[in-house]
Amino acid sequence: MINQSNFFDLYDIFVNELIGDVILAIIVSLIVIWFLTIKARMPFQLSILFGILLLAIFFAETNILIIWVFIVLSVGTMFYYLMSKAFK
């Protein structure tokens, strides 16, 4: 919340003032981050991890259960899939 003692709250400016909704802010941020990582020719695992990092930041701010479920799902799927490939 922006007030006289906290006038430079970047999260509040970005989510509430600029975009207006948390889920919409997540979707827009994911699109921007993935666009930039693909343009910088990063490996796709790094792109996914940047997305998960963004989700973790939003979850730390909002405590929304949907974000937590998707963080666990994506991290678990990626980790265990790569582990199964490593053991073959």
Binding site: G76, T77, F79, Y80, Y81, M83, S84, K85
Partner: peptide
């Protein structure tokens, strides 16, 4: 692969 991913998840 299925067993590892499903058990881990």
């Amino acid at each position: 692969t299925y067993i590892i991913v499903m058990s881990g998840l």
